[in-house]
Design a binder for these strands. Sequence first.
DNA 1: ATGAAAGCGCTAACAT
DNA 2: ATGTTAGCGCTTTCAT
Lengths: 337, 337
Amino acid sequence: MTRITIKDVAREAKVSVGSVSKVLNGLPVSVRLKQKVDAAIGQLGYEPNRLAQSMRRRSTGAIGCLVPDISNPLYWAVVKKVDDRLQRDGYMLLLASSSDNGRTEVDIVAEFKRRRVDGLIIAPGRETDAHLIKSLEQFGAPTVILGRSLSKTFSSVHVDYRSGVEVATKYLLDLGHRRIALLAPLAGPGHARVEGFRAAYAQAGLDPPEDLVPPRTMSLDAEHDVRRLLDSADAPTALIVLGTRILAGALKTMRDRNLDTPRDLSIISIGDPEWAAVHNPPITTLRWDVEEVARLVAELFLSQLKKKSKHEPQQVFVSTDLVLRGSCATPVRRAEK
Amino acid sequence: MTRITIKDVAREAKVSVGSVSKVLNGLPVSVRLKQKVDAAIGQLGYEPNRLAQSMRRRSTGAIGCLVPDISNPLYWAVVKKVDDRLQRDGYMLLLASSSDNGRTEVDIVAEFKRRRVDGLIIAPGRETDAHLIKSLEQFGAPTVILGRSLSKTFSSVHVDYRSGVEVATKYLLDLGHRRIALLAPLAGPGHARVEGFRAAYAQAGLDPPEDLVPPRTMSLDAEHDVRRLLDSADAPTALIVLGTRILAGALKTMRDRNLDTPRDLSIISIGDPEWAAVHNPPITTLRWDVEEVARLVAELFLSQLKKKSKHEPQQVFVSTDLVLRGSCATPVRRAEK
DNA sequence: ATGAAAGCGCTAACAT
DNA sequence: ATGTTAGCGCTTTCAT
């Protein structure tokens, strides 16, 4: 551990600590002074202590980043991108995940505060959390919320599931499907997806199959849910599934049952795992640009960081694309099977 | 931003700052004192400033964590697990990925030093890097290396690819394959895999097909490589592929070529992406326990952190399992096809 | 242009 | 048992 301080440098260069500090911070000094100080720094291998700097400057150059327990590739893609972007500006990420360690999001935000982070990037686990909102608001640092509508007082970036699912549902409806099941957890922004689902039915002048929409089902065991669904008397002819796990569960179940996609069941995946295009048949997917989400988070964040005046919070939505591949077809009536 | 300091608390409670500090740190004090201080703290909503604490205590409770690519499932699984474990002990992760931001690993480690992290968890991009090693050694803080044999002076956790690939190769050899291609990047611990590959051939009294082993090929474009390989006159009858990307490339190419797995080509994947079991046919995989890797990293790290005396560095290897699924079969002679 | 000195908020001796 | 005080390493007035 380096024990060399600015004092040592000052002594070595035979100047005052104040002068060394000036050189360090690029303030105007004489050429001679700068030379002496630089020489001493090189000589001693001095590295400034960021703790001490942070203390005086009242800024740590650290950003608190909180992601939930869900093992969602989206979060990591965003973390990576944000990290890349912020490192460029000299910031570092203090990362914490809110799972499996018995600490709540509020606890972690409190810890971020104690560590005097310069800002916060938060992907909350739940849609609304008064305690968390209050905690964030009274902190008052630049904050971006990812994926939830916590409160309009913060900037946030969302995927526009509502219209995405609407498009996907309409596509299936147009193909002739009527009994479409939406398999997504109720929690979180699930309601947006359900809204899109209902909207598509409404627009087609149809009633959505209430028994196939959450919150009907969805335990943690996706495979089990899918199995029950497919085995029921009035089984759906198409599935819209959220996320890798449920998709995998559905696909596995179908293989076990020797059901064919898309002949026996059409499938649309919400989210585009790498392998959706590899699978046989390739899975039709509602995808969005992870890179763009990440870019927006980083931009929104940096813009707040740079304005001195409170910037107006913005809610940004990232649109989705329905990527047509081979997992959807006109439904075959059960009797014909 | 909280502007309340220990002084304010002392004044409010009408005690000295020293006494407040004692209460904060759980040192023995009278019940009455503690009550007064706690009351004042609650009253004021005081939160200790960790920067100031760190400065005096000479310990930040922050751990520097450096990975080449946080969005890689292996790394983020480890990071998440390590984070869970370390949060329990009051630590936080300072995370940095060394890609796409123009900063070298040495730069980032230097930044970690300046920020006075209490320890380092590093997944180096390359097998050996004298500069990095020196930088880590002179830091002298608890350090765990993930996935590379940087230097025996640090503790490290590895996946035992050598024997894993040997087992996988032997399995294919026993099935009757002779022209097996090992598709893995040369860089990094690739040599261990190649060693395993050669060892299996040697043990069977056979010569490995030199033209099918890296460093023969492997550009960044896996699909292209696979295509060239399959189109060549003396194409392999089996593939051992490293990682999601290459596997996906291989599978896609095969679908395009209308080749069947395992009839036309057997495939073993090194690493077990979630979908390997979902794919049709399910992919035989050389897998290891990511959780265990993470657990070992955390344990190795904490044990160093807790010993005052330098602990002897340990090299831990995590063994692999060959999970037999449906992607391998006895080779069919080309002519018969 | 440079130096001296006062803190930043806290902990840890040392006094009392 | 509690209070006083000297720093931790740095930045930033304020003098010179």
